[in-house]
Design a binder for these strands. Sequence first.
DNA 1: CGAGTACTTGACACGTTTCAACATCCGTGG
DNA 2: CCACGGATGTTGAAACGTGTCAAGTACTCG
Lengths: 251, 251
Amino acid sequence: MSSKPSLAEYLLRRLNSIYALDADDIAAVDRLPVQVADLRADQDLVREGERPTRSCFIISGMTCWFKITGKGQRQILSFHVAGDLPDLQSIHLTKMDSTLSTVSPCRMAFVQHEALHAVCAERPKVANALWRMTLIDAAVFREWVANLGGRQAYARLAHLLCEMTMRLGAVGLAENHVCHLPITQSELADATGMSAVHVNRTLQSLRRKGLVDWRDSKLSVLDWDGLQAAGDFDPSYLHLRVPPDFRAWPA
Amino acid sequence: MSSKPSLAEYLLRRLNSIYALDADDIAAVDRLPVQVADLRADQDLVREGERPTRSCFIISGMTCWFKITGKGQRQILSFHVAGDLPDLQSIHLTKMDSTLSTVSPCRMAFVQHEALHAVCAERPKVANALWRMTLIDAAVFREWVANLGGRQAYARLAHLLCEMTMRLGAVGLAENHVCHLPITQSELADATGMSAVHVNRTLQSLRRKGLVDWRDSKLSVLDWDGLQAAGDFDPSYLHLRVPPDFRAWPA
DNA sequence: CGAGTACTTGACACGTTTCAACATCCGTGG
DNA sequence: CCACGGATGTTGAAACGTGTCAAGTACTCG
């Protein structure tokens, strides 16, 4: 990690969490030409059907992929946090099959596909790391399939909270199992395939059992083991090199 | 396509369905050293937690990925047909997060990761095609998330039948919307997150409406447009270069 | 012929959705 | 400054989709 503060700070943390890059690779990633933009909540980054020529990574904030089903219902497919490259796939999947939006205000960095292809060609380990990153996205989708198909509301919600806490922890944003999680109950409903009303009741149930406290977009996991058990959560599908210890990120 | 019959016939059809390879690339894929094996139904190919050194492709038959949730329930995550490389991901995701099993008797070909890495290094277009293939797997998982989270039983089942028909059609195995689909109702239940009983009733409903006929592992889609409408199915998430016309594959 | 597997049916129970009402907070404009 | 609308969260009661249980049929295979 370079000593001077870097725009790609969280991206590098994220890459480091899943793959061992050497200093030259890190420098190459850090030199990628990016364009930075600040976005409000609920802004589309790329829409279903489009053919973007660039990908983005999240400097801060949270985004989600979603699709609108025939009946007009929105299904959220995944959430993404600082350090993620949510639409990295677009380098080889030219036409978008879903829509990427901000969930909260975000600072984003955009990279042209050209530049990504170039760095992949020059530095095979970066190519490996990026390919691996898209494969981890796929692994998360698999887990969501299992979560939606195989668990009931209570476990489903608990599982999602575990996932978000651990992913934020992997980039140093969940000290002591406390993290900023700017998701509304209605978005939670769209993500878990539940009604907003039932999300509300289920959250109350999680609170009543002393597992979590969630107020003003701040999630505090009070009983991590209990929440993991409730959500039948096993983090191996996140393919982290080392499990985050949930302490502060070393300076 | 080479004139002599090739072990990799369906793999090449599949690659061709998603990416334009030139003759040299095709030849390189065709020359990959493989080991062929025949397996019975319900045999595990790779298990959760393992670290395989090879990937496989399906010469004939059908496989599925699944996970066992805490309550012992099996959730099927995806099905794979002839030409697919179901565990291609294992080249960069060393530890398996789910289990791959045969659904029907299968003829499989195994390729060492070494050989795959070598062909990727030598032929960038093959690397692109393979990366793209893993991204399409991810796109299918996304659609399954939307299907499980956003649609009710009837549409969910119809959608799955559409997907399987179209994927089989893409490699020439669904002439006139008729295909061999060796899946039991109980497996269908594990895939759609429904009970076997409800799958049974829902299938009857699809039959009663004249959309499909399904007997002895042979699925005949009698009303393709109707089934698409019932399943809210839009094939763009499969990222096929050209939509299959469901006629026989040209010789 | 018996055992096993896949499929089918009916009745009831349960998880979850729906609807409608209400509380709270916040930024905006009169 | 307060009134207002809009988004978010909360609650209760009834309706609905789907799961569960239990029994029975049809087939295949040794």
